[in-house]
Structure formats: structure tokens, C-alpha cells
């Protein structure tokens, strides 16, 4: 289980997180929704030590995040970044097998390449993609390579940061289905950030809405439409009128 307990974070005068408290049960797919700039990415990055909270506590499996062996802690995670964040200088297979080519999870090069090709197949890419460079791939293919990299070391916890942003509806559907399949297949705990309500319904077991630096509403995705919360209602129906100011 991942637990956020009264987490605060400010960037200068901009108070982004104002006391976030949230539990993500093990094996659950939690989707975080909320307007742009409400701190959703900051929340994910706080777990991985990419952002240090000003106060509050984050625990993973009951232990403080980033405590103890940093490598061992991070080896439990996979992350798909919004822009895929593939390393331009490396061919696709080395991007996918990055963790398997160095550090505590290091494998022989041949084995790492085989695993990379298997993961590429898993996300619907053919082995001939393996030796190409990220710049030679379309946006959708880059996202799938990013997904393959996130699952290459079979992590317990996977983070997806806006996995369908910038993709056409069909490719977005493919990515959503892949994420759902992989999370179920691996039994992983997943946290996804998205604005895309189709993704929310495809991926989520539970959702949490972040607004004003706090969790405004959280519950099963099946309860989302009948939540009775005006903020959540406005957001999921994409209405300009409502308690959330359209111009922020």
C-alpha cells in the first residue's frame, strides 16, 4: 500500500500540495484526476524522491519512501512519463532494458536484449523496432516503448503520467487497454495521472480528485458518476460552469 499523510509542497510562493492524505491499496489501479497545475505529477514524483515534500509522510508498504537502500526501493517501481522520456542516444532495446544492463538487476547483454524484445512484443511492437532510435518512432510507438521500459523489470508498482496525452483516440484506446491488461496480469499497484475521462474509465479501480492542493473526492470508479460532489461532477463532464474556475 502507498500512503500519503498530510503531504505539503510549495514551489516558492506557489503552494501546490496543501495536505494530501490518500491511500492506494496494494494491487489497485488508482487514477488521480484534477485540473492542470493542481500538483498531480508532484504527488507521484514525491513518492520517487524526484520532489521532496515540505512536510507530511509518504510510506510504501508501511515503510517511509526513499528510506534505506535507494536502489532497492526504486527497483520496485516502473514509470511511464508523459513524453515517454526515452534516451535519445540509445536504441530502443537498450532503453527498454536500461535497468537490466546496469545496477543491481544487471543481466547478460543477450538476456537483457531478449527480455526487451519480449516486452516490446507485449506492448504490440515488432522486434525490428528494437534497433531503431527513439527519434525514428511515432509518438504512439514512443509511448509503447516507454510502457515496455516501465514493465521490463516487472515492478510491484507502476506510475503512469498522462499516458494518452497527445495520442489519437485509437492509439489512446490501445494504450489504455495495454495498461489495464498489464496491471491485471502483473498484479501490480498502479497510479495514473490523466485528464482523459475515457482513460479513467478504462484504467481505474479507484479514483481520487486533487483540487486546491487536497484530495477533494476519492472512491471506486463505479461511484464516480453518482458522487454528488459538484467539483467532481464539473470535472468529469467537462463543464465550464461550476465551482472550479475555468481560468486559473
Amino acid at each position: 500500500m502507498i500512503r500519503f499523510d498530510d503531504v505539503h509542497k510549495a514551489f516558492g510562493a506557489n503552494q501546490v500540495l496543501r495536505g494530501v492524505t490518500l491511500e492506494v491499496p496494494q494491487g489497485t489501479s488508482m487514477v488521480i484526476i484534477g485540473g492542470s497545475g493542481t500538483g498531480k505529477s508532484v504527488l507521484l514524483k514525491s513518492v520517487l524522491g524526484l520532489v521532496t515534500p515540505d512536510s507530511g509522510a509518504i510510506t510504501v508498504g508501511g515503510k517511509p519512501a526513499m528510506a534505506g537502500d535507494r536502489d532497492a526501493f526504486l527497483a520496485r517501481f516502473g514509470m511511464l512519463f508523459q513524453g515517454a522520456a526515452l534516451f535519445d542516444s540509445l536504441p530502443v532495446w537498450q532503453n527498454v532494458a536500461f535497468r537490466l544492463l546496469r545496477g543491481s538487476l544487471k543481466r547478460p547483454k543477450v538476456e537483457a536484449r531478449e527480455i526487451a524484445i519480449e516486452k516490446l512484443r507485449r506492448v504490440g511492437l515488432t522486434p525490428d523496432v528494437a534497433d531503431r532510435f527513439p527519434a525514428e518512432l511515432s509518438g504512439g510507438m514512443q509511448k509503447r516503448v516507454g510502457l515496455a521500459r516501465a514493465i521490463a523489470a516487472e515492478p510491484e508498482i507502476i506510475f503512469f503520467d498522462e499516458p494518452t496525452t497527445g495520442l489519437d483516440p485509437i492509439m489512446a484506446g490501445v494504450i489504455n487497454d495495454l495498461i489495464r491488461e498489464i496491471v491485471v496480469e502483473m498484479g501490480a499497484t498502479a497510479m495514473t495521472i490523466t485528464h482523459d475521462m475515457t482513460s479513467v474509465r478504462a484504467i481505474a479501480d479507484r479514483i481520487a480528485m486533487l483540487h486546491g492542493g487536497k484530495i477533494r473526492w476519492t472512491g471506486p470508479v463505479t461511484d464516480m458518476d453518482a458522487s454528488g460532489d459538484p467539483y467532481l461532477d464539473q470535472f468529469i463532464h467537462g463543464r465550464a460552469e461550476g465551482p472550479i474556475e475555468a481560468v486559473r
Binding site: K45, L48, G49, L50, R70, D71, L74, A75, F77, G78, M79, F81, Q82, G83, A85, L86, F87, D88, F98, R99, R102, G103, S104, L105, R149
Partner: peptide, 11 residues
């Protein structure tokens, strides 16, 4: 975000 990606990959 490639630098962030490096960190998440324990590098």
C-alpha cells in the same frame, strides 16, 4: 524528463 527517468531507473 529524461533526467527524472534516469533516477527512476536507479541511475
Amino acid at each position: 524528463e529524461q533526467i527524472d527517468a534516469l533516477v527512476t531507473l536507479s541511475t
